[in-house]
C-alpha cells in the first residue's frame, strides 16, 4: 500500500491519468444514477433492476453491432427498446408497487432483475461480450498518460444525454409535470396532472437512460448477463450520497465515484475494488446519520 502511494506521488502523471480515467467512467455511472434518482424521487421506487436494464442496453447495442451497425446508431435503438420495456414493466408490476411501503419496490425489482438476467442468458448466452472497436488511444508523455477514445466518446455522449434530459425536465410540459409530481403528487393531481401518465413516463425514461448507458458500457468493458448488480450498487451509492432531486450533486458524486474507485483500487489493490464501492455506501450512510442526529440536537 505504501509502495503504491509512493508511486502516485513520485509519478504524478500516472495519478493524473487515473483521475482522468475515473472522471470518464464516472460520467457513465452518473448517468445511471441520475435515472435512479429520477424514479426514486418522483415515484419513490427503488429500482434494483437498474443494472440489468444497463446490461440489456449493452446487449441490444452489441447485437446490432453484430449486424454491422455502428454503436453510435445502436445506442439510440437501445434507448428506444428499453423505453418500451420500461413501459411494459411499469404497467405489469411497478404501477402496483408505488402505493405500497418502501420495501416492496426493492423486492419486486429484485425479482424483475432475476427474470431479466436469466432471460438474457437464455437469449444471448452466458459468454462475456464486448464491442471491441480497437481504436488507437491518445498517448501523452511517452505514453505514461493515455486517453482511450471509446471512454472519451462514452463520456461525451453521457454528458450530451444528461444535458438533453435536464433541459427536457426544465422546459417541456411533461418535465414540469414530472417535477410537480415529485414535489407533491396529490397537489399535482388536483392541478389536473395525470400522475399515472407521469409515472409511466418517468419509469420508461429511466429504463431508456439505462439502455443508452449500457450501449456506452458495451464499448468499453466486457459484460455478461449476471454483471448488472455491480452497476445497481454504484447507482445506489451515488444517489444515497448525493441525495434526491439534486442533479448537480448526482453528477459530482458519479464523477467522484469513478475517481475513488480507480485510485482506491490502485492504492489498496484491485481486489478491494468492490469493497471500496460498497464500503463507501456504508460510510456515506453513517456520515449522513451522524450529521442528521447532530442537526436534531441543535433543533432540540
Amino acid at each position: 500500500m505504501w509502495d503504491n502511494l509512493q508511486i502516485m506521488f513520485s509519478i504524478p502523471v500516472l495519478t493524473l491519468g487515473m483521475i482522468i480515467d475515473g472522471l470518464l467512467i464516472g460520467g457513465i455511472f452518473a448517468l445511471i444514477a441520475y435515472g435512479l434518482a429520477l424514479v426514486w424521487g418522483v415515484m419513490n421506487v427503488k429500482n434494483l433492476a437498474q443494472g440489468d436494464f444497463v446490461i440489456l442496453g449493452a446487449y441490444v447495442t452489441w447485437w446490432l453491432y453484430g449486424y454491422g451497425i455502428n454503436p453510435i446508431f445502436g445506442i439510440p435503438v437501445a434507448f428506444a427498446a428499453l423505453w418500451g420495456l420500461g413501459w411494459i414493466i411499469y404497467k405489469l408490476v411497478i404501477c402496483r408497487v408505488i402505493e405500497h411501503d418502501l420495501f416492496t419496490s426493492l423486492l419486486a425489482t429484485f425479482g424483475i432483475a432475476i427474470v431479466m438476467q436469466q432471460t438474457m442468458k437464455i437469449v444471448f448466452g452466458a459468454d462475456e461480450q464486448t464491442i471491441a472497436l480497437n481504436l488507437e488511444s491518445f498517448g501523452f508523455f511517452d505514453n505514461l498518460l493515455t486517453i482511450q477514445p471509446t471512454r472519451l466518446i462514452a463520456f461525451i455522449s453521457a454528458i450530451v444525454l444528461a444535458v438533453a434530459v435536464i433541459s427536457f425536465m426544465k422546459r417541456s410540459r411533461m418535465g414540469q409535470a414530472i417535477r410537480a409530481t415529485a414535489q407533491n403528487p396529490r397537489a399535482a393531481r388536483v392541478m389536473g396532472i395525470d400522475t399515472e401518465k407521469v409515472y409511466s413516463f418517468t419509469f420508461s425514461l429511466n429504463a431508456a437512460i439505462c439502455g443508452a448507458a449500457g450501449g456506452l458500457i458495451s464499448m468499453i468493458w466486457e459484460f455478461q448477463p449476471f454483471i448488472g448488480l455491480i452497476y445497481s450498487i454504484r447507482a445506489f451509492v451515488i444517489v444515497t450520497a448525493a441525495g434526491l432531486g439534486n442533479l448537480a450533486a448526482v453528477i459530482a458524486a458519479g464523477l467522484g465515484m469513478g475517481v475513488v474507485e480507480q485510485t482506491g483500487a490502485f492504492v489498496f489493490g484491485t481486489e478491494y475494488q468492490q469493497a471500496i464501492v460498497v464500503g463507501l455506501l456504508v460510510v456515506v450512510l453513517l456520515v449522513k446519520l451522524v450529521l442528521s442526529s447532530r442537526r436534531r440536537q441543535v433543533v432540540e
Binding site: 402496483r96 405500497h100 419486486a108 425479482g111 432483475a113 432475476i114 427474470v115
Partner: peptide, 19 residues
C-alpha cells in the same frame, strides 16, 4: 434452465399481488 425465471416471477407475484 428456467428455474431462476420461475423464481423471479414467484418473487414478483408474491410481492406485488400477495402481500
Amino acid at each position: 434452465n428456467l428455474q431462476w425465471v420461475a423464481l423471479g416471477l414467484l418473487i414478483v407475484v408474491t410481492v406485488v399481488y400477495f402481500q
